[in-house]
């Protein structure tokens, strides 16, 4: 189980990375933490001709500014996990991302840009209404994370464009959040997961973000569930109703471990649990 031959270059800066990727074209792949990319290389599921190593491009770092937290693309997941600036939802979700040792190396930006439908960080970013910053040959742009994810392993990043930063809103007043996941065993890919971010004011839910993953091909905010919640006082009944609604909004394919019916049901259970805990 060894990778195909490829060329490897170290990018010492973002400019070098973009130049190398431009030169490599479709056959080039950026390499961040490698915790998903390198297994795919070893299994020969990916066969790039050029790997551009971003780990020395100076793209890491966590900065808090203006009510949000900017996380450089190659910031290790473990570093975010330990950071006081990490949003509580992210701190709750990160232990579900792989294992301690893979989080030591795996990066925040890599996980987001990889766009695995069962990945936790993309779900959190969408649930929090975060943004991504991408830079490519045509310059830098910032856009909502929700617009990044298309389907499994597919994003709206343009050819030659790199995700350089993710932007995470800091918790607002009256906000409570919760993350729920079930996997067959600790550290595994989720069967289903749900995140709820609710802003409460005077006993009423004023704003709601509810998103699910693993049962969808990309992290998906459930607008109908959010609409159900907003304007209502939180209650067990409301959470249950929201979960039941969520179950009807997903159409998971199922797999060797679980049927579509189970995954739909589980989505409802996890959404309900997340909403309860976020109230």
């Amino acid at each position: 189980m060894k990778p195909v031959p490829f060329r490897y270059v170290v990018a010492r800066s973002l400019e070098e990375a973009l130049a190398a990727l431009a030169e490599g074209g479709d056959d080039a792949k950026p390499l961040a933490g490698g915790q998903s990319l390198v297994p795919a290389l070893n299994l020969r599921l990916l066969r790039p001709e050029l790997l551009v190593d971003l780990n020395r491009a100076g793209l890491d770092g966590i900065v808090r500014e203006n009510g949000s937290v900017r996380v450089g693309a190659t910031t290790r997941q473990a570093e975010l996990e330990r950071s006081p600036h990490a949003h509580p939802l992210v701190r709750e979700a990160l232990p579900f991302v792989g294992h301690v040792v893979t989080r030591n190396r795996g990066t925040v930006g890599g996980s987001v840009a990889h766009a695995d439908g069962a990945a936790e960080l993309p779900l959190c970013l969408v649930a929090l209404g975060g943004e991504v910053v991408a830079e490519g040959p045509d310059g830098r742009r910032t856009f909502p994370a929700e617009e990044l994810f298309v389907t499994h392993y597919t994003t709206t990043l343009l050819p030659g464009e790199l995700l350089v930063e993710t932007v995470w809103p800091a918790p607002g007043g009256g906000e409570r959040s919760a993350f729920e996941e079930l996997a067959l065993r600790g550290g595994d890919y989720a069967l289903a997961m749900a995140a709820a971010v609710l802003r409460h004011d005077q006993g009423v839910i004023r704003e709601a973000r509810v998103a699910v993953g693993a049962v969808t091909d990309h992290p998906t905010a459930l607008a109908e569930v959010e609409a159900l919640l907003v304007g209502n006082a939180p209650s067990d009944e409301l959470a249950h109703e929201a979960g039941a609604l969520a179950a009807t909004l997903v159409d998971p394919a199922g797999g060797i471990h679980a049927t579509p019916a189970y995954l739909r049901h589980l989505t409802g259970v996890l959404v309900e649990r997340a909403i309860r805990r976020a109230t």
């Binding site: 299994l43 067959l184 065993r185 600790g186 595994d188 890919y189 060797i256 471990h257």
Partner: peptide, 15 residues
């Protein structure tokens, strides 16, 4: 369908 340690699920310490 279970040709990797991702799909062939063996128990780990928490399990």
């Amino acid at each position: 369908m279970t040709a990797s340690f991702v799909d062939y699920v063996t128990p780990t310490a928490p399990d």
